[in-house]
Amino acid sequence: MSDDPASILKDAKTKMSKSVEVTKEEFTAIRTGRASAAMFQGITVEYYGAPTPLNQLASLQFPEARTVIVTPYDKSAMAQVETALRDSDLGVNPTNNGDTLRVVLPALTEERRRDYAKLAKTKAEDGRVAVRGSRGNAKKALEKLVKDGEIGEDEGSRAEKELETLTKTANEQIDEALSLKETELETI
Rank of each mutant, 00 (worst) to 15 (best):
E125K: 08
T83Y: 01
A37P: 13
G98M: 08
K161H: 06
T83I: 02
K161W: 02
G98P: 06
A37I: 12
L185G: 04
E82L: 05
N137R: 15
E184H: 15
Y116D: 01
A79Y: 00
T83A: 04
T95H: 01
M16H: 05
A177I: 14
A79G: 02
R34C: 06
R102A: 00
V104N: 01
L101I: 03
Q173T: 03
E184I: 13
L9P: 13
A79L: 03
G127W: 00
E21F: 05
P53R: 00
L145K: 09
M16Y: 09
R113G: 10
T44M: 15
A84T: 05
V45L: 06
R128N: 14
P63N: 14
E26I: 10
A141E: 13
D74E: 09
N137A: 08
A170F: 14
K168M: 04
T32S: 15
T44C: 05
G91R: 01
A58E: 11
T28I: 03
T44I: 14
R112Q: 10
I188E: 01
F62W: 00
T28H: 05
K75W: 04
I43P: 09
K18F: 09
A117E: 08
A124N: 04
S76W: 03
S134R: 13
K144D: 11
T169V: 01
E64Y: 06
N137Y: 11
N97L: 05
Q41M: 05
T169E: 04
R158K: 12
L101G: 02
K15R: 15
A141F: 10
P63Y: 03
L119Y: 04
V104R: 00
R114G: 03
K18C: 07
K123Q: 07
T169D: 10
N55L: 09
S157R: 09
L54M: 06
E21Y: 08
N96P: 13
E125H: 03
F40P: 02
I69L: 05
T32D: 13
M39R: 03
A6S: 11
V92G: 10
D4E: 13
E111D: 08
V22S: 09
E186H: 06
A84E: 06
D4G: 13
K139P: 00
L166R: 00
E82T: 08
T14G: 07
A6K: 14
K75R: 15
A120F: 10
K75S: 09
A77Q: 01
P63M: 12
L54G: 05
R34T: 05
R128K: 13
A130G: 14
K75N: 06
S17W: 02
K140S: 08
E25C: 09
P63Q: 09
D74R: 06
V20A: 11
A79H: 01
L108Q: 13
T165H: 15
